[in-house]
Simulated assay, not measured.
Amino acid sequence: MKVAIVDDDPIVCTSIGTILTATKTAEVIWSAHDGVAAVREYERHEPDVLLIDVQMPDMDGLQASELILNAHPQARILILTTFADPEYIRRAVELHTKGYLIKQDVASVIPAVQAVMAGQVVLGAEVLQQLPMLGTQGSAMTDAAAMDAGHSDERFEGLTERERDIAALVAEGLDNRQIAAQLYLSEGTVRNRISDILAKTNISNRTKLAVEWLSCHQ
């Protein structure tokens, strides 16, 4: 896998690059420190996944992402920032980026990059917690922007009461361990129940499950 990293802090680029290369997750083919350079370098050497910050000089990461996606609609762009700002998240969702991750959670970078490469959409726990707020702002939770979210509760009608409890907690951004502790279940049981929920609802992953659940239960 070939990745590119864009952040106005060179130390961040180096640190993330070291993690990705040392774990043999990916090869970092270039890095940049502002949005203008990101657009220029993307045209020269297209990566499999682009990691990009939001707040940068000259052109921010969301503006750069929009330009890149206009020219390359299949681009896999993962927003990696320190800000769980509802407006930033809304814009990232509307642009159809492949994810929004808070960079303090360094351990999540590797699985996030792998998930994006596999075609999944990745939203960090802090981001999932903002989705109900986004839903009240209108356009962010339309079909396209909400990643094909449903507009009714019909697809969840076949779930048991316990499965609905688990789906609601997934939508709150809880991980399997936290859900297990709250519902007095084992992590294995939670993992199996989530698999059952995804199969019953024909939803591909827990991130889309969270988005669709929130769009139906505002």
Rank of each mutant, 00 (worst) to 15 (best):
A115G: 03
A115H: 13
A115E: 07
V116T: 05
V116D: 02
V116A: 00
V116Q: 00
V116H: 02
M117W: 05
M117N: 11
A118C: 07
A118H: 10
G119Y: 06
G119K: 11
G119D: 06
G119C: 10
Q120Y: 14
Q120V: 01
V121M: 10
V121P: 03
V122I: 15
V122F: 12
L123G: 01
L123M: 12
G124N: 02
G124M: 07
A125H: 01
A125Y: 00
A125C: 01
A125M: 02
E126M: 13
E126W: 01
E126H: 13
E126A: 15
E126K: 13
E126G: 11
V127R: 06
V127S: 09
V127H: 08
V127W: 12
V127G: 12
L128T: 03
L128P: 06
L128H: 03
L128V: 13
Q129Y: 03
Q129F: 04
Q129N: 03
Q130I: 14
Q130H: 07
Q130E: 15
Q130K: 13
L131S: 04
L131K: 01
L131R: 01
P132L: 14
P132D: 09
P132Q: 08
P132H: 13
P132F: 14
P132T: 08
P132Y: 09
M133N: 08
M133K: 07
M133G: 02
M133D: 02
M133C: 06
L134A: 07
L134R: 04
L134I: 14
L134T: 10
L134H: 04
L134M: 10
G135E: 00
G135Q: 01
G135F: 00
G135T: 00
G135S: 03
T136S: 08
T136H: 06
Q137K: 13
Q137R: 14
G138N: 04
G138D: 00
G138L: 04
G138Y: 04
G138R: 06
S139K: 14
S139V: 12
S139G: 10
A140P: 05
A140K: 05
M141C: 13
M141P: 03
T142H: 10
T142E: 07
T142W: 07
T142A: 09
D143M: 12
D143A: 11
A144E: 02
